[in-house]
Protein backbone atom coordinates (compact mmCIF):
# COMPACT_ATOMS: atom_id res chain seq x y z
CA UNK A 1 0.00 0.00 0.00
CA UNK A 2 1.22 3.54 -0.77
CA UNK A 3 2.29 5.98 1.94
CA UNK A 4 -1.25 7.32 2.24
CA UNK A 5 -2.61 3.95 3.41
CA UNK A 6 -5.50 3.83 0.94
CA UNK A 7 -6.05 3.87 -2.80
CA UNK A 8 -8.54 5.53 -5.12
CA UNK A 9 -11.45 3.09 -4.87
CA UNK A 10 -12.84 2.35 -8.34
CA UNK A 11 -16.33 3.67 -9.04
CA UNK A 12 -19.00 0.98 -9.36
CA UNK A 13 -20.89 3.27 -11.73
CA UNK A 14 -21.36 1.84 -15.23
CA UNK A 15 -20.84 4.39 -18.00
CA UNK A 16 -23.04 3.22 -20.85
CA UNK A 17 -21.17 5.44 -23.30
CA UNK A 18 -18.00 3.49 -22.68
CA UNK A 19 -19.20 0.03 -21.62
CA UNK A 20 -18.64 -2.49 -24.38
CA UNK A 21 -21.53 -4.96 -24.54
CA UNK A 22 -20.32 -6.70 -27.67
CA UNK A 23 -20.60 -10.09 -25.97
CA UNK A 24 -24.25 -9.33 -25.19
CA UNK A 25 -24.88 -8.39 -28.80
CA UNK A 26 -23.27 -11.62 -30.02
CA UNK A 27 -25.50 -13.63 -27.69
CA UNK A 28 -28.47 -11.56 -28.81
CA UNK A 29 -27.73 -12.44 -32.42
CA UNK A 30 -27.67 -16.15 -31.53
CA UNK A 31 -30.75 -16.03 -29.29
CA UNK A 32 -32.90 -12.97 -30.10
CA UNK A 33 -35.38 -14.00 -27.39
CA UNK A 34 -33.26 -12.50 -24.59
CA UNK A 35 -34.24 -8.99 -25.72
CA UNK A 36 -37.79 -9.72 -24.51
CA UNK A 37 -36.79 -10.58 -20.94
CA UNK A 38 -39.07 -8.81 -18.44
CA UNK A 39 -36.90 -9.66 -15.41
CA UNK A 40 -39.70 -11.56 -13.66
CA UNK A 41 -37.23 -13.97 -12.01
CA UNK A 42 -39.11 -17.22 -12.77
CA UNK A 43 -35.88 -18.69 -14.16
CA UNK A 44 -33.95 -17.90 -11.00
CA UNK A 45 -36.76 -19.23 -8.82
CA UNK A 46 -36.94 -22.58 -10.62
CA UNK A 47 -33.18 -23.00 -11.03
CA UNK A 48 -31.90 -26.38 -9.81
CA UNK A 49 -28.44 -24.98 -9.13
CA UNK A 50 -30.01 -21.90 -7.52
CA UNK A 51 -30.77 -23.99 -4.43
CA UNK A 52 -27.05 -24.44 -3.81
CA UNK A 53 -25.25 -21.51 -5.40
CA UNK A 54 -25.62 -17.82 -6.20
CA UNK A 55 -26.69 -18.31 -9.81
CA UNK A 56 -29.04 -15.98 -11.62
CA UNK A 57 -29.68 -15.93 -15.34
CA UNK A 58 -31.76 -12.75 -15.01
CA UNK A 59 -28.97 -10.82 -13.32
CA UNK A 60 -26.40 -12.27 -15.69
CA UNK A 61 -28.34 -10.81 -18.62
CA UNK A 62 -28.37 -7.41 -16.98
CA UNK A 63 -24.66 -7.47 -16.23
CA UNK A 64 -23.93 -8.65 -19.76
CA UNK A 65 -25.98 -5.84 -21.20
CA UNK A 66 -23.97 -3.42 -19.06
CA UNK A 67 -20.77 -4.89 -20.41
CA UNK A 68 -19.68 -6.57 -17.16
CA UNK A 69 -18.90 -9.89 -18.80
CA UNK A 70 -16.77 -11.53 -16.11
CA UNK A 71 -19.26 -10.87 -13.29
CA UNK A 72 -22.11 -12.07 -15.53
CA UNK A 73 -20.41 -15.32 -16.42
CA UNK A 74 -19.37 -15.91 -12.82
CA UNK A 75 -23.09 -16.01 -12.06
CA UNK A 76 -23.68 -18.72 -14.68
CA UNK A 77 -20.73 -20.89 -13.75
CA UNK A 78 -22.72 -23.45 -11.78
CA UNK A 79 -25.47 -23.92 -14.39
CA UNK A 80 -26.44 -27.59 -14.78
CA UNK A 81 -28.19 -26.97 -18.13
CA UNK A 82 -31.27 -28.78 -16.85
CA UNK A 83 -33.54 -26.47 -18.90
CA UNK A 84 -36.15 -25.78 -16.21
CA UNK A 85 -35.70 -22.03 -16.74
CA UNK A 86 -36.62 -22.41 -20.41
CA UNK A 87 -39.74 -24.32 -19.41
CA UNK A 88 -40.95 -21.71 -16.93
CA UNK A 89 -40.01 -18.54 -18.87
CA UNK A 90 -43.26 -16.58 -19.45
CA UNK A 91 -41.72 -14.93 -22.51
CA UNK A 92 -40.77 -18.28 -24.04
CA UNK A 93 -37.08 -17.33 -24.18
CA UNK A 94 -34.70 -20.20 -24.88
CA UNK A 95 -32.58 -19.33 -21.83
CA UNK A 96 -30.61 -22.56 -22.06
CA UNK A 97 -29.46 -21.70 -25.58
CA UNK A 98 -28.31 -18.28 -24.38
CA UNK A 99 -26.31 -19.87 -21.55
CA UNK A 100 -24.59 -22.26 -23.96
CA UNK A 101 -23.70 -19.40 -26.29
CA UNK A 102 -22.30 -17.41 -23.37
CA UNK A 103 -20.22 -20.37 -22.20
CA UNK A 104 -18.90 -20.92 -25.72
CA UNK A 105 -18.13 -17.25 -26.44
CA UNK A 106 -16.33 -16.92 -23.16
CA UNK A 107 -13.93 -19.75 -23.79
CA UNK A 108 -12.89 -18.40 -27.12
CA UNK A 109 -11.40 -15.45 -25.18
Amino acid sequence: MNRFGYRLSPSSQIDLDVSDNSLFRQILAGEPGISTCISCGSCVASCSAGVFDKISFRKALHLLEAGMDTEAVALLEGCMMCGKCTLVCPRGINTRHAIVLIKRKLNKG
Partner: peptide, 10 residues
Protein backbone atom coordinates in the same frame (compact mmCIF):
# COMPACT_ATOMS: atom_id res chain seq x y z
CA UNK B 1 -8.14 2.51 11.70
CA UNK B 2 -6.27 1.19 8.65
CA UNK B 3 -7.66 -2.14 7.39
CA UNK B 4 -10.17 -2.04 4.51
CA UNK B 5 -11.22 -5.39 3.01
CA UNK B 6 -12.26 -3.49 -0.12
CA UNK B 7 -15.18 -5.70 -1.00
CA UNK B 8 -17.51 -2.81 -0.75
CA UNK B 9 -17.65 -1.73 -4.33
CA UNK B 10 -18.54 -4.93 -6.13
Amino acid sequence: FTINSEEHYI
